[in-house]
Design a protein around this nucleic acid. Structure first.
Length: 271
DNA sequence: CTGTAGACCTGGAGGC
DNA sequence: TGCCTCCAGGTCTACA
């Protein structure tokens, strides 16, 4: 489900919970990508939610004595609900707050997501510390990406989806950014010119910024914490549009598999 | 070191 | 209806 824009939309939606205190935590299923710490209900009780930040596709929820490192995987989502809300089969975790009795509810049918507790600096956590730069930061520029890719034999789409190269670019936005930049997804990374890399960096920043503004992409099951869907799927130029006409040149969009993932491009507009 | 297939899961869509 | 196959927003781990 979620690439960087969807995670950011989720994070922003959780902000009303800042500075509230945890009344109780209920865990119905501990087996996510990694098992949830069995002591989490005890650990979180009475703690205050002090900060919500994001690193790549991870949400970092800082509490009084530690941090939850949260990843939504493919199908994870949060919603803020009242105690009377009917439970879904895949509602695995509830965090209820004292001040308003509202529940932060985590649902994840495929359970590829994770909710990890750490009392150390989360930026030193093994899942976080080796991540590449944020795509919206200045340090992610043409020079950086060109240097990073100049010896890479793998195709450009797989390279920009590698979180050690740059975080947050998933399968949708990789295809979209490459289309805007006019680069075919199966080009060998080291053969992409400096000029093209410059255009790609701009495209990645633009597509991610625009997607955040539109509330993310709702393919089937992404909704923000209030249950509202995103609109960016309506702006997709190539993703999911196999054999439909390219908006630029009318030729049918081509689909191919790269690294076991579907990729979409226009053979006329992308070289 | 680099690159790729497999693994982890459930549910929805489409074919028969 | 039911059963089967394929596909889906991610990414760690093992292996060549």
């Amino acid at each position: 489900m979620p690439e960087l824009p969807e995670v950011e939309v989720t994070r922003l939606g959780l902000k009303p919970l800042l500075n509230l205190n945890v009344k109780q935590v209920v865990i119905r299923n501990y087996s996510l990508r990694w098992p949830i710490n069995p002591s989490l209900p005890k650990l979180l009780k009475n703690q205050t939610l002090l900060d919500l930040s994001r690193r790549g596709k991870y949400i970092l929820a800082k509490f009084t004595s530690g941090t939850l490192i949260i990843h939504l995987g493919m199908s994870g989502r949060f919603c803020i609900v009242s105690p009377s809300e009917v439970l879904n089969k895949h509602d695995h975790v509830d965090v209820q707050f004292k001040e308003n009795n509202l529940i932060l509810r985590y649902r994840d049918p495929r359970r590829f997501g994770s909710i990890l507790w750490t009392e150390e600096d989360p930026y030193n956590h093994k899942l976080i510390k080796n991540l590449g730069p944020e795509p919206l930061n200045e340090e992610f520029d043409a020079k950086y990406l060109f240097n990073r890719l100049k010896n890479k034999q793998q195709c450009i789409k797989n390279s920009i989806m590698d979180s050690h190269v740059v975080v947050g670019v998933g399968n949708i936005y990789a295809s979209e950014a490459l289309h805007y930049a006019g680069i075919r997804p199966n080009r060998i990374s080291k053969k992409v010119s400096m000029k093209e890399i410059g255009s790609l960096v701009k495209s990645i920043k633009n597509v991610i910024n625009e997607a955040i503004k539109k509330g993310g992409s709702t393919m089937s099951d992404f909704f923000d914490v209030n249950g509202k869907n995103g609109y960016f799927q309506n702006e997709h130029k190539v993703y999911g549009r196999e054999s439909e006409p390219c908006f630029q040149c009318q030729l049918p969009i081509i689909q191919l598999k790269l690294g076991q993932r579907s990729s979409f491009f226009c053979k006329k507009c992308q070289k």
